[in-house]
Amino acid sequence: MILLAIILAVTAFVFAGFAVWPAARLRPRWLAPSILAGLAGVAGATYFAGAQPQAPGVPYQQAAAERMATNPEALGQAAQMERLRDILRTDETDAAAWAQLGRMLARSERELEAINAFQRSLRLELNARTLSDLGQTFINLNDGQVTDEARAAFEEAQRMDAALPEPGFFFGLQAFQSGDIDAAETIWLDLIARLDDRDPYKILISEQVFQLLSQPQVNAEAVEAAAASEDFDPRQRIADMVQRLEARVAAGDAGFADHLRLIRVRGMLGDNEGGMDALQAARDRFAEREGAMTILDLLAAALQTDEGQGE
């Protein structure tokens, strides 16, 4: 405010004048404090009469009005988040706005802010999707590990909406991370079987499950020790792994994950024919498991595409 600035400037000027005035010894001691107190009183009255300490400035109001008048899809990510903050400055009880802000913050890798936004939304209104998003944000914050906090969010989300696919996937991931591959396999295959064929999550989850279950099981310490030896031959180690997997498959002792590992390693070696043979063995073994067949169908399509490109 201009008037307030002028008053403050006069105050500073008067104070400086009293400090350097040659006749300072002649002035009454009460004069300077009285003048300063009077000016301060005028400044305070002026401020409280015309100021609005909690109100946004005019430039902000103009920018907010422009954001609100614009289609959100036409705004950049930062402007979209600021638009949501505009809404929440007006109404802090808008649970949907808090949830959407949380999603945008999570996509921006601002997990702590996202968690706060999700929790504020959930305090206003429990919502299965928001709970699931909160669980995923806890996982992202913890470098991909399914923590107890994340599991609790997923359990509540699943209780509220059993059709949500994400909780089941992350329950399986927690089992996988703990080393219980069989439990993870069961959870994931049952989940894939429950999903509708038109649900895009069915393909996404199937692809992710293949990537996880087909990871070779290796002892990191043993591999490190072997790599340090003079006779270490990585090709021989791969050949030995393939031999062990083929022996399990032939004996009927291989689980679904073993079949996937064999298919994957064949593909990594460029042995498409061997990969197709391993795929057919898996189809014969798990013909009654709908979830397994969904993954195998995707692999068959991928292998056929690779064969076509190689011709």
Rank of each mutant, 00 (worst) to 15 (best):
A43M: 04
A78H: 03
V20R: 11
A24G: 12
N71C: 04
E92S: 14
G17V: 08
L26R: 15
A32T: 13
V20M: 05
F15E: 10
D94I: 06
A95K: 13
R25N: 11
M104K: 15
L101W: 10
S108D: 13
W98E: 06
R29G: 05
A55F: 02
R89K: 11
E82R: 06
Q54E: 11
A49T: 15
P59G: 08
L75D: 04
A63E: 07
E109Q: 14
F48M: 09
Q52M: 01
N71D: 13
S108I: 00
R107A: 13
L101F: 09
W98V: 07
P53E: 05
A97R: 04
M81N: 12
Q54W: 15
T90Y: 08
A45Q: 08
E109V: 00
D91I: 01
P53Y: 11
V42S: 09
V42N: 14
F15A: 05
A49R: 15
T90N: 11
Q61A: 04
T46C: 13
F13W: 08
F18W: 01
W21Q: 07
S34L: 10
M104T: 00
R25W: 06
A9H: 13
R89Y: 03
R83S: 02
A40R: 05
N71R: 05
Y60T: 01
T11P: 06
R85A: 14
P72H: 09
A49C: 12
